[in-house]
Structure formats: C-alpha cells, structure tokens
Design a protein around this nucleic acid. Structure first.
Lengths: 341, 341
DNA sequence: GTGAAAGCGCTAACAC
DNA sequence: GTGTTAGCGCTTTCAC
C-alpha cells in the first residue's frame, strides 16, 4: 500500500494527492501571503508582475483549484445552481424539459442538479428539502405530492419554486401548465365530429394531470350524448399494450382510443401495429417516430421544452428580484394528425 | 414596493425573509448558545429536554434550515454530489444513462449535477473544471474532446473521473465502453451471410465511437470481398432521413443499410417507412417503437443504463478508496432482429 | 504593493 | 448540561 495509485502528474509529488491544496499552501510555496495569492487568482490588480508570476507558478505546480464553495460562503454569493425534481429523468418527456431548463440556466451561468422523485411524494419532499439545505438558488419541480405546504416556508425563506406541468395547490409558487381539460376536450370533440362512435380513454388514474385529461374526454363525450368509457392501467407501456390488446378484442371494439400520455401511447401503438386493428389513436404528447407510423394518429401536444424554458425564466425572474404575485402560464397545446397517406 | 410579495407564512414576520436564519439567529431567539442549537439540530444528546424543546420551537419559528454547504466545509465532508457531463440531456440515450447514474448515486446519498457539453470540447472542459471548483466528489463524462490531459491533474488531486461510452486517451481514468468495432463487424457479417449484396453504412464521421462502428463495417465488408460504401451526414435525424431518401433512389440501391446510432436510425426509419423501399436496416442502438415497426430491423444494442450503472459503480469504488490501475469495462452488446410480421 | 485580522455558517475540542 | 474558542477556505477591511 502506498505508491500503487495511478501515476501522478503533479510536478511536486510522486504519489497521490492527499488533499487539494489551498491558497495558504500556494502562499507558502510562493513565499507570499495568503491575500496576495487571492489577488492573483482573482485577477485583482495591485500585485507586482514578478510576484504575480511567482504565485501563478506555485499555483500551477501544486495544482491549485479555487474552492468556490468556500468562496461563496464568504462572499454570501449564491451557489449558482438550481434544482430540478421530476418523475424520472429517463423519461424522454422530462429529459426534454431538463434540456430546456439547462439552456436557460446556462445563460445565467447556473448549473442544474436533478433528481427523480419516482412519483413518490415522500421522496419528492426529501429531495426538495435536501436541495434547500444545499442552498440551491431555486427549485423547479414537476409535483407529485398533493400537499406541498412545506414548500411555502422555503419560498418565504428566499428559495423560489416553480411548478411544471401541474400547479402546486395553495403554495404561492409560479407554475406553467398545459390546459389539459380543454385540450383533451377539443381533441375528443374533433373525433366525435369526424364520425367516431365509440371512443375509449386509456389512463393511469391518480395522476392529476392525467385525470384532467380524462375529465376533458368525459366532458366532450357527455356533450355529444355518448357514454364515456375509461380503462385504467398502470402507467407503463407494457400495461397499456396489454390493455389495448384487450380493448380491440371487445365484441364492440372502439373506433378510436384516447391515450392520455406518451408512456401509454407507446404501448397502445405497439398493440395497434401488431393487431392491425382498425382503430384510430388520439394521443396526448408526442413520441419518437409518431410522424412515420402507418396508423391514423391524432396528436395533442404540449411541448415539454417550452414548459421547461418558461418555467426556468419564471424562476430567474424571481432570482432577479421580481416579487409579484405567483404567476401561472398556460402553455399552448397544438394538435395535428397523421393519416395513413 | 414593500409588502406586495406573496403572502408570508412565517410566524415571526409579516413580509418576506431577507435571508435564511442561521444557527446564531436561532440561538438568540431561544436564549441559548450557538453550540446548543447545533446539538439539537444534529440530534446529539447531552441537552436537557426542556432546552431542546425551546430550541426546536425557535428553529421552527424562524424557519431554520441547516446550511449543509457550511457544514461540509467545516467537517471536511464531501459535497455528496457527482457531476455528469454528456452530449445532450435531451437525447434519450443519455437520459437513460443519467437515470442509471442517478440510481447508483442515490443509494450512496449523492445528488448528481448534470451538464450538456453539446459535443463542444471547449465547453466540455469548462464544465468539467467548473464542477471541480464546486468540489463535486467525482466526475462522469461522455468525452467529446480529443485531448483530456487537463483531467489528469484533477484525478491526481483527488477527483476521480470515469469515462462513459468512449475511453479517455492517455488520462488515467476508468472507462466503460462498448465493443464498437466487433459488434458492428459481427452485425454486418451477419447481414452478408444472410445473403445481402449491397450494404451501405450511414454515419457522422469524427465521432470516435461512430468511426469505430464504421471500422467494424469496413472490416466485415472487406473480409467478404465487398466494397464498403459509407455515407457521411450531420448527426441529425433530418439529415439521415434525407440521405436515406437519396440512397434508396440510387440506380443500384442497397439491400440493407447500417445506421451507426439512434439519432441517425430514427431518420432512416422515417425515410424507409415513407418510401416503402425494400431495404433492411441494421441499427446500432435501440429506439422507441423499434419492436413494432413494419420493417426488417436488426438491432445491435449496448445498454446506456448498463454503462451508466457500471460507470457510477466504478466512480464510487474510487470514492471508497479503491486505488488500483484504471479499469476498463467493455459492455456486452446484444443483437436481435424484428421481422415484418 | 503587500499583509494581518476578522468573519461567512457551521462543527470539533475543549472548558466550565 | 452548556458555553467558549478555534478554524474549514476563502474574501473583506484596513493597516503598513
């Protein structure tokens, strides 16, 4: 034990570094005071060129890297990070959101630290609070929990919070949300006026956003004097696929399916392509390859990137000192169709 | 200006919080010393129950949240974060990797801070160095730059680095990479022995991983006495789609296409579905809906999640004190086919 | 030009 | 049981 570490690259030492050198180490190495090192590292002037050069050399020799954590503590500067908590980074929908957030954050020289809540309210809460203890400047969250009262405190304490994709109840947070009810309602109404008799909705209940979409479906059906039929499954492509297989095999199969989000849609598409069933699909959210599938496909989409971007902008407005009432932005949904050609 | 802020929830104040309270604030509020507060907050014992209760009350009233940044500085504890720099978080391939990293990090109570290099070596370097200044415990990177010599220093300074998807040149970093050359070679050889005459490769050159896959293609073709034909496009689905449109319209169109990654494959699929061309596709990497498309599809896949998981485990091994020579893990590739029915 | 001392918010090592 | 002092790595203030 001792010198078996990967070969050192430091000029000073042959072995591995015990700890990162501090300004004091550099100062001693250069034979100057701590403060002089600080001046050189931060490019302040008032240091003789020769001294500065000596310091730079020492810094390079020791491999000095300023500790920005300590710096921020002393200056009272922010950590220049924002937290982003959503359901699952692995989901392309959230990944797109993440990307947009990152772009806005990057313009303001902020890094983003992400965490997946796995749709678990307890976990969500812990993550959010941990991010506060780490003193992120602000929080972006795709809320899972029903009760976010604990966030009010953090907001009052100076950590702004922006909710994405869903609002945050009574908490005074900005939010950016799609108009789920109306978008779904209009989409379904469109199917009905195109002559569809039987339209079945596929959802995972207990997710507020999805419930709203189902509500839009219900409204459209009732307005047209039709009976809503809702199939409830796990929020998982495989479950959606199995359910779709079932549904298309009914004695009176639907003429169209309404799938409330992209995870479910992927499963539905799988089933439809396999069974060759003559069923059209109305899908909330897009997914890869939607444009090239050989099925009648109607899409209602709200852009996760747009939500991320606007949400991040809301957040930075607060960080810039904006103190108005909580704002709510409803992102536009677009809808379009792909026909079998 | 003044009291227009969102309604305060603090018991103490009516307006907005100027700054987050410190332990000293709590101490004064409770009429005890700083250290007593520290004991209570950290659940150390040796505090009279009554005193502890007073402190807890004061803490709650002021909305105290321990500043873990300051705490870590004092204790010398790590920041309990790891950095992850890849091409683009919005790309599902990286998102899957991110997810796996997050899971491993979470088991070790670490958060992950992500940043997209946008395949720009300069940006990549800046991000990596910034993460070091912020004192992340370790770095995971999908390398873009050719020269990462600067990372040797960080590694020697105690910040381990693990490269994902590509190795890191002369830098003494662990890495986990797919066996690009052999996997591609075997895939193409399979096509040849299945009777394919003309196989064209579609790639974006100058990405090392992709070049290796093309190299595998070349080898397989040459071994079979066939002339390699490589089409080089921007790494973008649209570009791939346009190129594919072109290729299938050749006087002697290929009988199969080899697409070297998922971004390109998505474009190729778009073109193939539209043109109804009778061309099989060999694709490196999977993509959503691959399993249900009505085309002859052969997949060579290395799992981004597996790479992320193993990479993160490598990283935590180092953080746990492992000091062996840099390790290289070659992830297995699997291959399978989907036929038209 | 340069440096000594104090302090950011917290904890470690002692005292009382 | 509780408080005091020092100090993590840095910047700020002010003296020389």
């Amino acid at each position: 034990m001792g010198s078996t570490g990967h070969r050192g690259n430091l000029i000073t030492a042959g072995g591995r570094a015990a700890k990162r050198p501090t300004m004091l180490d550099v100062a001693r190495h250069a034979g100057v005071s701590l403060k002089t090192v600080s001046r050189v590292i931060n490019a302040e002037d008032g240091v003789a060129p020769a001294t500065a050069e000596r310091v730079r050399l020492a810094s390079r020799e020791l491999g000095f890297r300023r500790n920005d954590v300590a710096r921020d503590l002393r200056t009272g500067a922010s950590s220049a990070t924002v937290g982003f908590v959503m359901g699952d980074v692995g989901n392309p929908f959230y990944a797109a959101m993440h990307r947009a957030i990152e772009q806005v954050a990057d313009e303001r020289d902020h890094l983003v630290v992400t965490a997946s809540s796995e749709e678990d309210p307890t976990r969500e809460r812990e993550l959010l609070l941990e991010l506060c203890r780490r003193r992120v400047d602000g929080l972006l969250v795709v809320p899972t929990a029903a009760d976010h009262a604990y966030l009010s405190l953090e907001i009052d304490l100076g950590t702004p919070v922006v909710a994405l994709d869903r609002a945050l109840g009574a908490v005074g947070a900005d939010c950016v949300v799609p108009d789920n009810v109306n978008a779904a309602r209009a989409g379904v109404a469109g199917l009905i006026s195109a002559g569809h008799d039987r339209i079945v909705a596929l959802t995972s209940s207990d997710f507020a956003a999805l419930d709203e979409r189902v509500e839009g479906y219900r409204l459209a059906m009732l307005e047209a004097g039709r009976a809503p039929v809702v199939v409830d499954v796990e929020q998982d492509p495989r479950a959606a696929r199995a359910a779709t297989m079932d549904v298309v095999a009914w004695a009176q199969p639907p003429t169209a399916l309404f799938s409330v989000n992209n995870r479910l849609s992927v499963g539905v598409v799988g089933a439809l392509l396999r069974t060759q069933a003559d069923v059209e699909l109305l899908a909330f959210d897009t997914f890869e390859l939607a444009d090239v599938l050989p099925i009648e496909l109607h899409i209602i989409a709200h852009d996760p990137a747009e939500m991320g971007r606007i949400g991040a902008e809301f957040l930075f407005d607060r960080l810039d000192g904006f103190e108005g009432e909580p704002r709510k932005h409803v992102v536009s949904t677009r809808s379009w169709s792909y026909t079998r050609d």
